Amino acid sequence: DTINITLPDGKTLTLTVTPEFTVKELAEEIARRLGLSPEDIKDTHNGKTLDPSLTLAEYGITPGSTITLEIK
Results as ranks from 00 to 15, higher is better:
Leu54Lys: 15
Asp51Ile: 06
Thr6His: 14
Ile30Ser: 00
Thr18Asp: 05
Ile67His: 03
Glu70Phe: 04
Arg32Met: 08
Pro52Glu: 10
Gly35Cys: 12
Ile30Pro: 00
Thr12Pro: 02
Phe21Cys: 12
Asn4Ser: 08
His45Tyr: 13
Gly47Cys: 13
Pro52Arg: 09
Asp51Trp: 05
Ala27Lys: 14
Gly60Ile: 02
Pro8Ile: 08
Glu25Gly: 05
Ile71Cys: 14
Thr49Lys: 13
Asn4Glu: 06
Thr18Ile: 04
Tyr59Phe: 10
Lys42Cys: 15
Thr68Ile: 14
Thr49Trp: 14
Thr12His: 09
Val23Met: 11
Ser65Pro: 00
Leu36Cys: 14
Leu69Asn: 00
Ala31Lys: 05
Pro8Trp: 07
Ala27Arg: 14
Gly60Arg: 00
Ile61Ala: 02
Leu50Asp: 03
Leu26Phe: 08
Ser37Thr: 11
Leu69Asp: 00
Leu56Pro: 00
Ser53Met: 10
Thr44Tyr: 12
Pro19Cys: 04
Thr12Ser: 10
Gly10Arg: 03
Ala27Leu: 15
Thr16Met: 11
Glu25Trp: 05
Leu36Gln: 06
Lys24Asp: 02
Glu29Trp: 12
Gly47His: 07
Thr2Lys: 10
Asp51Gly: 03
Gly35Pro: 01
Leu56Ser: 00
Pro19Asn: 04
Ile5Cys: 04
Ile3Gln: 03
Leu50Arg: 04
Asp40Ser: 12
Phe21Ile: 09
Leu69Phe: 03
Val23Asp: 00
Pro8Ala: 10
Lys48Asp: 08
Leu69Gly: 00
Pro8Asn: 09
Glu58Asn: 04
Gly10Tyr: 03
Val23Pro: 01
Ile67Val: 09
Leu34Trp: 03
Glu28Asp: 10
Leu36Pro: 01
Glu28Ala: 10
Ala27Gln: 12
Thr12Tyr: 09
Arg33Lys: 08
Asp1Ile: 15
Thr55His: 02
Leu54Gln: 07
Thr22Gly: 02
Glu20Asp: 12
Ile30Asn: 00
Glu58Trp: 04
Thr55Gln: 02
Leu26His: 00
Asp43Ser: 15
Glu58Ala: 05
Glu29Cys: 07
Leu7Ser: 03
Gly47Phe: 15
Pro52Ile: 08
Ser37Tyr: 13
Thr6Lys: 14
Ala57Val: 12
Thr18Arg: 07
Glu39Phe: 15
